[in-house]
């Protein structure tokens, strides 16, 4: 459907809905439920150089309108992703996919991007410099503009595919980080990753998560994400992928009005596995409701 089409860093999407990394695996679990080719795209599970088990369990907690996770980038490592996961992904998804990558040093980011660069199906790199659940990596790169710039530069150097930097909301001024990435050649910005949070078990007096803290996601964070997308859209001229708590077609429209060219749906995939399909199906009706002809017309209308 023409009116749902949007463009992200030069690649056309059938619709703006992208399933977010860490909530969609490598696609095939959801392909058992519906044809995932209806999606704009999806961002696969954060991939690192070496295999990672992640943090000890329990690593899931609940709160009002959201959840807190401390998974900690569990993944089989880039070699196994190439050998085992991507062939399975290819069978169920036939569009450009977003490769979410992470690392514990700028060199590791570069290494993983270089290894994945030859994979034809990868349309974009989404560089996670914002995971709050790993020590000595992840978010550490996204809270310092110099380090964010360094990772951008390293990844930029080894690929011609669009590089989208995924930012953390756990900073004083997100526009400063976004501008640093843009200056080093980032093609896009995605935000927000999760907000650092915790719960305490009243019976034990101890944190619910074994890791102590985790990252908050779900509808609870939507207004925060919207605000940060809006601020960032005013500060940079590269496209933005807006994410954080999107749970409806109307949230998609609102996020695009704030300046996002496309959106990602994350936590809600876990509680409502058909949410992306429902949102895509509902979008035309909602566009009618608000008198919008083509969804791309509203990008940044609130700026």
């Amino acid at each position: 459907m023409e009116r749902l089409k949007t463009t992200l860093c030069g690649i056309e999407l059938d619709n703006p809905v992208i399933a977010a990394s860490g909530t969609f695996g490598y696609g095939y679990e959801f392909a058992e439920l519906y044809d995932i080719n209806i999606l704009g795209s999806f961002s696969f599970k954060g991939t690192t150089k070496d295999p990672r088990y992640g943090n000890p369990t329990p690593r899931i907690a609940e709160c009002a309108s959201g959840m807190i996770n401390s998974v900690g980038l569990q993944n089989p490592g880039v070699d196994k992703v190439i050998e085992e996961e991507l062939p399975k992904l290819k069978k169920c998804f036939h569009k450009p996919v977003m490769a979410n990558i992470s690392g514990f040093s700028a060199e590791e980011y570069e290494y993983v991007a270089e290894r994945l660069n030859a994979e034809d199906q990868i349309g974009w790199f989404e560089v996670n410099i914002s995971c709050p659940n790993v020590h000595g990596g992840g978010m550490g790169f996204g809270t310092d503009p110099h380090m964010a710039a360094e990772v951008t530069k390293r990844v930029r150097k080894v690929t011609n595919k669009p590089v989208i930097m995924k930012l953390t909301p756990n900073v004083t001024d997100i526009t400063e980080i976004a501008k640093a990435c843009e200056a080093e050649g980032a093609d896009g910005i995605s935000l927000i990753n999760t907000i650092m949070a915790m719960r305490i078990d009243l019976r034990t007096g101890r944190p619910v998560l074994r890791n102590g803290t985790g990252g908050l996601s779900g509808p609870a964070v939507f207004p925060v994400a919207l605000r940060m997308v809006w601020q960032t859209a005013k500060a940079v001229s590269i496209p933005i992928v807006g994410l954080g708590g999107i749970s409806s077609a109307e949230d998609v429209i609102e996020m695009m009005m704030a300046g996002a060219s496309a959106v990602e749906v994350g936590a809600c995939n876990l509680t409502e596995p058909f949410i992306c399909k429902r949102i895509i199906e509902e979008l035309p009706e909602k566009l009618d409701k608000y008198g919008i002809k083509n969804i791309r017309d509203i990008i940044g209308s609130a700026l």
Binding site: G22, T23, F24, G25, E29, F30, K45, Y53, G54, T57, R59, I60, M67, N69, V71, Q74, N269, L270, T271, P273
Partner: peptide, 11 residues
């Protein structure tokens, strides 16, 4: 988290 293998919360 999800109960169907997507979030790897219960590894």
């Amino acid at each position: 988290g999800c109960g169907f293998g997507a979030c790897v919360g219960c590894s």
